[in-house]
Amino acid sequence: MRWLTEGKTIPVLTIVVVIMIVWYVGAVFMNAPVQRDMNKRAKIEPTTAEFVEQTWNQPKPILPAPHQIAQNFWKATFGVKVTSRRSLVYDAGVTLSSTVLGFALGTVLGVLIAVGIVHLPTLERSFMPWIIASQTIPILAIAPMLIVVLAAIGVKGLIPKALISAYLSFFPVVVGMVKGLRSPDGLLLDLMRTYNAGRAVTFWKLRVPASLPFLFASMKIAIAASLVGAIVGELPTGARAGIGSKLLIGSYYGQTIQIWSALLMASLLATALIVIVGLSERLTLRNMGARP
């Protein structure tokens, strides 16, 4: 019972219950005007209990009730074949592939830029303002242009979406890795100098291991940004699959329940990705003798 009383279980569950209550109550109020209109037209006069139940079970509610989202999510995830167009798993898979590819590209690019910046002071002065400027432009403005330009030169499908993911994810990696590669203090660098160690040796034996904790912290931010990039990348392409396209189609046809269950899938995906990065962080740092 200790884990129950001392762990995070009870606090987390409490918050969940509070959210559910607020949600259900909110759904009644949000959906009430539409429901009243519909009842008037159909000349139905429900009791209060019946009315509340109606607001929780509309086909296209303004705010769907949690159980509606859960039902839709369950059906779209487990109720259809994975290869089906209606399967959320299929959509998640499509989005995941460009997320992972974009994350990999972004991380590699970010690390390379950071290595360059740490070793060439001119690169920092010439590159850093551009890197920061790149992140001040809304991704929604860049994404359609990028996709149009790439489509014009014949690059379609996975690559443009992955590039948008990479565009969002390289930035935290650059910032984190520059800090990480510079984290060894003067003493440790002096030590390398007394051994007459060259730049390459100092880099591999000192800077790289010292930067790893920073890299993992950056990667957690980068993977979440990658997912956002992949979803945003699916919006202007008119992509026929992916969580982004589900959101777009849902908003065309007012299918709020589908939008919410796609959002649920997106957040589950993000959680899973961050957990994977976190686990590999734990594993790596433990092998590097980190204090448990």
Binding site: L187, L191, M192, V201, P209, G289
Partner: peptide, 27 residues
């Protein structure tokens, strides 16, 4: 020469034997 600093300046990700072996690896 070998230089000993005010702080031990050991690499936290290396075991003691690996720390002592560091200059030997480099050399």
């Amino acid at each position: 020469y070998g230089y000993v600093f005010q702080a031990a300046a050991l690499y936290p990700w290396r075991t003691i034997e690996k720390n002592v072996a560091l200059p030997l690896e480099i050399m």
